[in-house]
């Protein structure tokens, strides 16, 4: 029975706080091996769902690895393909450690299979370059991205940005997942389907959580430069979404929030605790309403 409970508590961990939640669950259960056993699967699902951003070293350099279902070489294998380097990387979801396969192991068929054909790979590369060098740089200062060739020959564009500031008690995450399909050899046109997820958490003397998501669909856009046009389109949609969020938050603060509790009574004075003026103020309220 406690397997279900362990899963329930872990899967809702706020951005960047899986390790802290895991530690609490272990304290409560008192059987680390049992918790680890459940956690391996739950955290794996969590990482793929929220596009967890890991890093690994190869050739003396540090590389980003986005965990997503598009990167899985085989379901449940913990081996992920990094399209930017063409390497297979082993990721330990419990230890949060990534390690590129070396030597014989590295020459896997999986990596070959995931690369796709030459035309698709060159299209992928162009979109990736545009995304990384133009869009990410400006808009996601802490984020990482990846572009994959999917089984159906489409491109999957993933963006993930998590900021965690445990010392100031807050964290936040933005993830985007877009699928780009094309028509014609040029290609001449493209369509996009996407989803953005936003979550924030504030936990100093409290617990405040923000959740939002939006789905997008853009059909049949003409193009002469796929990489440039599709990233521009993603940028426009995401910008509009963020603008809507900001406007709605301000509007809520100005309207509904004000109706919940006033800053001061209508009299513009604090409550008259020591005089009989309370009833006068109540009278004023009634008149205002009438």
């Amino acid at each position: 029975m406690s397997e279900k409970i362990i899963d329930e508590l872990l899967k809702d961990a706020p951005p960047g706080q899986v390790k802290e939640v895991l530690k609490d669950v272990k304290t409560l259960v008192g059987d680390d091996a049992k918790v680890d056993n459940v956690a391996r699967k739950t955290i794996r699902e969590y990482d793929l769902k929220h596009l967890t951003h890991a890093t690994y070293k190869h050739g003396g350099k540090s590389h980003s690895l986005l965990l997503s279902k598009h990167a899985e070489t085989k379901p449940g294998s913990d081996l992920y393909y990094d399209p930017a380097t063409g390497l297979c990387v082993r990721y330990d979801h419990l230890e949060q450690r990534a390690e590129a396969l070396e030597g014989e192991e590295a020459k896997s068929e999986e990596a070959e299979r995931m690369r796709g054909d030459e035309a698709a790979e060159s299209r992928r590369k162009a979109v990736e370059t545009q995304l990384r060098d133009v869009y990410m740089e400006k808009n996601y200062p802490f984020g990482a991205c990846a572009v994959y060739v999917t089984g159906g020959g489409d491109l999957a564009v993933c963006i993930s940005s998590t900021v965690s500031k445990p010392r100031s008690y807050w964290s936040g995450r933005w993830t985007s997942e877009w699928v780009l399909s094309t028509k014609g050899d040029g290609p001449d046109s493209f369509s996009l389907k996407g989803k953005c997820d936003v979550a924030t958490h504030y936990y100093e003397q409290g617990n405040v959580q923000f959740r939002s998501n939006r789905e997008f669909s853009v059909a049949d856009r003409k193009t002469s430069d796929l990489a440039k046009d599709c990233i521009k389109c993603i940028a426009e949609e995401e910008f509009k979404y963020q603008e809507d969020l900001q406007e709605s938050l301000r509007e809520f603060a100005e309207t509904t929030f004000k109706k919940l509790r006033r800053q001061l009574p209508l009299t513009q004075l604090k409550f008259p605790w020591h005089t009989g003026a309370a009833s006068l103020a109540t009278e004023l309220m009634k008149r205002e309403k009438a």
Partner: peptide
């Protein structure tokens, strides 16, 4: 205390949240 908390809530819920989103995705 409630008056102070009302202002904190307004800050944390609306102002703060907007700032955090903007710090993740720079608009």
């Amino acid at each position: 205390l409630e008056g102070g908390m009302r202002n904190s809530l307004q800050q944390v819920y609306f102002g703060w949240c907007e700032q955090v989103v903007s710090s993740i995705r720079n608009s």
